[in-house]
Design a binder for these strands. Structure first.
Lengths: 246, 246
DNA sequence: CGGTCTCTTGACCTCTGTCAAGTAGAGTGG
DNA sequence: CCACTCTACTTGACAGAGGTCAAGAGACCG
């Protein structure tokens, strides 16, 4: 089932992600690799999951970026999580009746989609896989707490720098080279929705970071120019990403 | 093992919390009730868990309030979660090597403390209990996402109102009558640290809420006077608390 | 090459932060 | 019951980070 040649085959990407924080036996790994699944392609801003729905699939991000989002009644939008290639997108629906947020494609994406019932059977039969799922959930929650700290207690410059540092770490760990090579996938409006700012102020702050030499820009592309400087202005530490977890 | 008469005996409080969102068989319930445990009393601001530590206990809040907290290098503090009586305080250490935040008593508290090894044995033997643990983790994460939305996209007045609504819901569900009866347990400084504001501005905003009739104050005590008005100014909906979960 | 979506920029405004001094509860000891 | 003390709460004047509005420029796309 090699649906695209430019993405890892089948379940390899999910396996890689789980192995990055959890130990799985050869049998566990084989069981995951053998899961029936299909590939689905979506356009930017297509919905993967809507708040209030029930879901019976377990989507994994094979390529591209996605985000979780909630809105206020008067139209404010807050991005609650950014998902990068390899990330499982919804273990929650295995345990809760209703989805409590919206999940959308940020860029064009390829999803690997497993039937939740199939995955649930695996989790029930294999404790190590169940454990890996929980670790994944807990790490995402830890990242959420860090965003709460950033948006509550840091100014716009530090928030922006912190987000760049975090994405750089996570992308590096996932083997895609980080933001020194790669360009930031978010538009300024999306950055604003992550950071609780307005697009105008993100624009101003981006210019300040550029002037300081921390980032460089090429047209609409943003990438990291001086990681050390960025880490300093962000007061960044990677402890909350739990990277040392076996 | 009835250590205090003014709190529910033994494990009843944890059991009540888990049953509020999960189904457990009579045997599962008995197994939880039979867990060896002890009671520990702490003073306000005592640490229950420190960032960076490992923990081998599973504390449950029997009475009083507690909070999770992270700080920035330059001294900013953000409260990441508020725990009310009945809440389990740390399932995370069962799955992750290091604690990623500080956990402190907000008021004087009584903790029921279980050895993590004992609890882990239970979770491994009883799938329904394992499931209840995950549901608990997921609901806390959903609350965290709502705080992210509030602090990012609502002004001080709505944030404060929203927090009151949330605590009122959660306290009502836990059977303690909600904030119409009970007084808000947080000081203005602590409210500020939850909401990403300063104590001075919390004070101003509290006065505005009082003028509008939504809350009433008696000395240092705050309680809800007009829940409907509070819900309106907060744009509050309880969907994110997953109360309908069996 | 026209259309559309992002990004830029400037002027102005306001919400929230800062500083600093004073007041009032709540607890403690006499 | 009254000092005394420690917090927590209040209040006002002022400052500044970030929001709002609006117009124009630049990218990317078919």
């Amino acid at each position: 089932m090699f649906d695209r040649d430019h993405a890892p085959p089948g379940m390899a990407i999910l396996l890689g992600k789980l192995l990055s924080h959890s130990l799985l036996s050869t049998e566990d790994q084989a069981a995951i690799a053998a899961l029936p699944h299909e590939t689905r392609c979506l356009e930017p801003n297509d919905y993967i999951l809507r708040a209030g729905e029930r879901s019976d699939i377990c989507p994994v991000l094979r390529s591209g970026f996605a985000y979780r989002q909630r809105t206020t009644t008067d139209g404010g939008r807050e991005i609650l999580s950014i998902k990068i290639p390899g990330d499982p997108l919804d273990f929650q629906s295995m345990y809760l009746a209703a989805v409590d947020h919206n999940l959308q494609a940020l860029t064009a994406v390829e999803l690997t989609v497993i039937r939740m019932a199939d995955f649930e059977r695996l989790v029930q039969a294999r404790p190590a896989i169940a454990r890996a799922v929980i670790v994944d959930i807990l790490i995402e929650a830890s990242i959420g707490r860090q965003w709460l700290l950033n948006n509550g207690r840091r100014n716009a410059l530090a928030r922006l720098a912190h987000l760049f540092c975090e994405l750089n770490c996570r992308l590096s760990d996932s083997g895609s080279g980080g933001l020194v090579r790669q360009k930031m996938p978010l538009t300024q409006e999306q950055l604003a929705d992550v950071l609780g700012l307005t697009p105008v102020h993100v624009n101003r702050t981006l210019k300040a970071l550029e002037r300081s030499g921390a980032i460089a820009r090429d047209g609409r592309g943003i990438h990291i120019a001086d990681l050390g400087s960025l880490i300093d202005t962000a007061d960044f530490s990677d402890f909350y990403l739990h990277r040392e977890q076996r």
